[in-house]
Design a binder for these strands. Structure first.
Lengths: 194, 194
DNA sequence: TCCGGATTAGCACTTGGTACTAATACCAGT
DNA sequence: ACTGGTATTAGTACCAAGTGCTAATCCGGA
């Protein structure tokens, strides 16, 4: 018993985690044991065969791609919108969004939710952020559901600039506020003639 | 010939694009033709078999996961850093980062690069953004290489707050500036005794 | 020396295919 | 109605990467 069984199985799990594409035969060469031993090891560790592994990995992709497609439009999910007036979006914070050490959500996710909502609320071919001022008031944690409310500030807005205020809350506590000065390009004449 | 061959093959391609997990047998039921016909169709359309399809889909996942792991640390790549003083990162803008219609980079990516650089430059267990003010000066397009330079403003900083200024440029033109007021938690005494 | 866990070997069977051949179906033109 | 050509179906042999099972062998320690 060169390498003890236990150690080999540990390494096997790591190998497959890092590269799930390895066949039993390739693994048997890597660990210099027979294919049968690899099979027994997988059996003991509850590791499925190559095809099953690829199936689950591929399934993860399809998931992720659907998600990232959503996020192409807006970060978070718009639940209510009245164009050029106000909009509300929900963003569920997961482990993917937080600092590993502190568990606190990274600022740019809150910003992304707010900023993309500010863009969405303006019914325009093209709305760009010019300047913005942000306040991160309370740390947001994994599992929190952040509700962002955007309102267009008609008073301050003019032909060249539109102001959008966003307030994000978790369980009715304000965690973030942002003020966005937006630039709109559109031949906006239709709604301009009000 | 109920459904013409051409039409069936078109639908087949769409079906598999949307769900690559279908076996020939499942497809043959879906289209009410024999398994062999499905095989011929795949052959003519150059569609690989189930296992090959899953392999490529799974490969895409692994790729994507490596990328998103990188981004767990910093958005962009740090090329130079002097802790508590300054840092530089590079971020290559791709089609994934821009508005489809205008081709202009979405603000939150520029913010994410700047903000994560501001976090990284502070040699601390935990640095959080408190407030920040941003200026998006020039539109950034796909293919642009954004260089963000962060400098810690020692003058304005105090025990409670650290100020980090970030200037992002594309080909020596400033496209974005951000001022970040950061909060640090660490028992920071070591470097505090300067 | 003998026991027992670890390892290896071998065989039948499974999925989801490829590659190929042969048979049939269907429809149009003459 | 006959012929031709495309489309479809059927059937066979074979492959990769397995599972499941049985049997043989190895190797180290009391």
């Amino acid at each position: 018993m060169r390498v003890p069984k236990r150690e080999r199985q540990r390494q096997l799990e790591m190998s497959l985690e890092q590269n799930p594409f390895l066949t039993d035969e390739e693994l048997s060469k890597q660990f210099k044991v027979s294919v049968q031993t690899i099979r027994l090891d997988r059996l003991e560790c509850g590791i499925p065969e190559l095809r099953e592994r690829l199936k689950t990995v591929a399934a993860r992709t399809m998931d992720a791609e659907v998600k990232s497609l959503q996020s192409d439009e807006v970060i978070g999910e718009i639940v209510d919108i009245e164009l050029d007036k106000r909009a509300i979006s929900i963003f569920d914070v997961t482990d993917d969004h937080v600092f590993r050490r502190s568990g606190i959500a990274r600022g740019h996710h809150l910003f992304a939710q707010a900023n993309s909502l500010a863009v969405a609320v303006l019914d325009d071919d093209l709305a760009l952020t010019v300047t913005s001022t942000l306040n991160f008031l309370k740390p947001v944690k994994s599992g929190d559901r952040v509700i962002a409310r955007a309102t267009v500030d008609k008073e301050r807005s003019n032909e060249k600039r539109t102001y959008v205020d966003v307030v994000s809350t978790v369980e009715n506590e304000t965690v973030f506020t942002g003020e966005f000065q937006m630039y709109q390009t559109t031949n906006h004449s239709r709604s301009e003639v009000k």
